[in-house]
Write a protein that binds this DNA or RNA. Structure first.
Lengths: 165, 165
DNA sequence: ATAATTCCAACCTGAAAGGTAGGATTTTGA
DNA sequence: TCAAAATCCTACCTTTCAGGTTGGAATTAT
């Protein structure tokens, strides 16, 4: 009784903004440039202050590094192909488990786990979700995005430049 | 900016309690008996008043029917094999979409859906989740549960009676 | 110096999760 | 006929958290 947790694969703004920011950083990874929070926030039409807090989480998790001062900003610490979205979401939201009793590490808050009629379902769901999250890399996402932009531009008869800022 | 929605496949208590209650009802379906809220709530160690509110949602959705008065209670309106957990969760939580922009029916709250770098990922995730939710029936869950109980009882050297109440 | 940036910490707000209380109505059966 | 067992119904309460703001200190290139 008295359970409290809105957690889950909730895909709150936290997770969504953070992931999109990471894709933006992935697109800039080759160039070696840093990207400022202002630029990232502007690209998504969101508050700089709010995005900053997500980036801090990503930095703590070691996924991005920062440079202060003029021309400062953020860049990925690893190549996009070695960063999967599962890591990113975990950095941003703490967990990606839909209920506590399927969290491999802890086995808390479920007294009767082994006789629970719903647990097999939760496990199956969790497995499918983990599968997608852990197998999708930032590079995959960046490529999808590039292709999408090129497609849109080709329909508009544009030259097809897809860049940030 | 300013997004507000804790929705998602959040697996709150609402969804979890409701689903487990439905499994209990599924186990009693063959007998034709109704099961009271008191019994259902007791089986999960939760508040009757709180579970009642979930059952009301399930009734509104046409998944259960009720009988009032002494010996009253609830029973499924259909055979467990024709009720999937997706329906149940939708009845309890309203939606099972992880973000609005992957909701097939509405296409709201995402101005730049077609150029969103994260949308392909959300779509993939959503598809996996829907797949599990819509392909798992109450009957599947009841069978899993029965098997589990029998297994536990056999290890205890019991006769293997798995019943409610 | 100063402008652009990251860094940091506190604070605010509304909505929803999770839960409770209490009574009206219906039905069975002693 | 009346009491008990149930659903039905509505209003309320409390805590947490998503989502966001504010303001300033520290750092760094020009």
């Amino acid at each position: 009784m008295n359970e409290r947790q809105g957690r889950a694969v909730k895909l709150s703004t936290k997770g969504r903004y953070g992931i999109k920011a990471m894709v933006d950083l992935a697109l800039e990874y080759e160039s070696g440039n840093t990207v400022s929070i202002a630029t990232l926030a502007h690209s998504q039409n969101i508050s700089e202050a709010y995005l900053e807090r997500q980036i801090v989480s990503l930095k703590k998790a070691g996924l991005v590094e920062s440079a202060r001062g003029v021309f400062g900003g953020y860049r990925l610490t690893r190549s996009p192909e070695f960063i999967n979205v599962g890591e990113i979401l975990r950095a941003l939201e703490g967990k990606t488990t839909i209920v506590d009793c399927v969290d491999g590490s802890v086995m808390k808050s479920c007294d009767n786990a082994c006789s629970c009629s719903a647990r097999p379902l939760w496990l199956k769901l969790q497995a499918r979700i983990d599968d997608v999250l852990n197998s999708t890399t930032l590079q995959d996402m960046a490529e999808d995005y590039d292709a999408q932009i090129k497609f849109i531009n080709s329909k508009k008869g544009d030259t097809g430049n897809a860049s940030l800022s």
